[in-house]
């Protein structure tokens, strides 16, 4: 097998640009989840939010004919589910893990039902896709240029939002409140930061990002909706948050690393021709998980301390959690 067909200069650009493009939905969800978890809420509903975002954005794009409106709708349904999660977990303080799993189950059931109701027994509906845009000047940057700046508009929007949310978390007052609320809610409350309000906002941001992830998957890549189209990306995103040690930029990097190993295994199969039939495909399939695990273990061993927000998963009630 000729490795230059994978890692040669031209081939590498193709490999990297497909990796980042296909990793984007997971990356968006993971960055959103980082915000929620830094605020102290473990949101396991991510998979359901991705799925709902995918369906609603598809339906709007299909019936209205506008990818832009579809994207907005995808974000909106994500925000709604984020609000539901916040209502249950923050306002009512019920078990976060169950709330999250319940949201996934409800989203799976309802998306399936709605899609089947509208299109059951018909040919699979499809929408016109959007095409790639080369960004002038930036596109000419050697290395990064052709990888990042030859994508579709949704990709640029996503990248900007992912970076924006990262900055929001690390560089703004709101971000400071989020982190304070996740580390020590009682202390935050003492300095006049509302724990409930901050966690609500964090979950709305998280839902919106996951909804956008669903929209990007369907409108930016597939142009069709399918049962369980999110394919477990939400769960992987949750793992990536821990992998990135709750640092949004590391989380983003982790998502791209995961996307890279995923794209790599598919490309190795294509380039190696016959190898696929002699080497078990499951080895290729396990690669992204094993690499993520190995990097994670290595990073923890080297860095030592756990970076988990102290109040993650713990409901807060004024005057009780001292």
């Amino acid at each position: 097998m000729d490795w230059s067909e994978i890692f040669g200069p031209d081939a590498l650009v193709v490999l990297l640009s497909t990796s980042v493009a296909f990793a984007m939905p997971t990356a968006l969800a993971a960055v959103g989840e980082t915000v929620a978890e830094r605020a102290g809420v473990l949101n396991l509903g991510l998979e359901g939010m991705l799925l709902a975002g995918a369906l609603v954005s598809f339906l709007v794009a299909y019936y209205v004919g506008s990818v832009a409106l579809g994207t907005v709708a995808g974000v909106a349904i994500g925000v709604v589910l984020g609000a539901l999660m916040a209502f249950l977990s923050v306002s009512l303080r019920t078990e976060q893990i169950i709330n999250g799993i319940a949201i996934v189950l409800v989203a799976q059931g309802i998306t399936l039902f709605v899609f089947e109701k509208l299109f059951g027994g018909e040919e699979q509906p499809t929408i016109a896709g959007i095409s790639d845009v080369e960004v002038p000047l930036l596109h000419d940057i050697p290395g990064v240029g052709p990888v990042v700046f030859e994508q579709n508009v949704l990709f640029y929007l996503s990248l900007a939002l992912a970076l924006g949310v990262s900055l929001l978390l690390t560089r703004t007052r709101f971000g400071l409140s989020v982190r304070a609320v996740g580390e020590s809610p009682a202390a935050a409350e003492a300095t006049a930061v509302s724990v409930a309000r901050t966690r609500w906002l964090a979950l709305l941001v998280c839902g919106g990002m996951a909804g956008l992830g669903g929209a990007v998957l369907v409108l930016g890549q597939l142009n069709v909706f399918e049962e369980d189209v999110s394919g477990g990306r939400g769960w992987v995103a949750i793992a990536l948050v821990i992998f990135g040690r709750w640092n949004p930029l590391l989380v983003l990097g982790g998502a791209f690393l995961f996307g890279f190993t995923d794209a790599l295994q598919i490309r190795v199969q294509a380039v190696s021709g016959g190898i696929a039939s002699s080497v078990p495909t499951e080895i290729f399939g396990a690669l992204p998980y094993v690499v993520t695990l190995a990097v994670m273990v290595a990073a923890t061993v080297l860095a030592g301390r756990d970076a988990q927000p102290a109040a993650l998963g713990v409901p807060f009630r004024k005057g009780v959690n001292a």
Partner: peptide, 22 residues
């Protein structure tokens, strides 16, 4: 009743139970 709906009902049940418990 579509099986898709059936998937969602236990989840609704469990969430309401938790709220009640709260």
């Amino acid at each position: 009743v579509p099986y898709a709906i059936v998937l969602a009902i236990p989840a609704v049940f469990v969430v309401f139970l938790l709220i009640a418990d709260r």
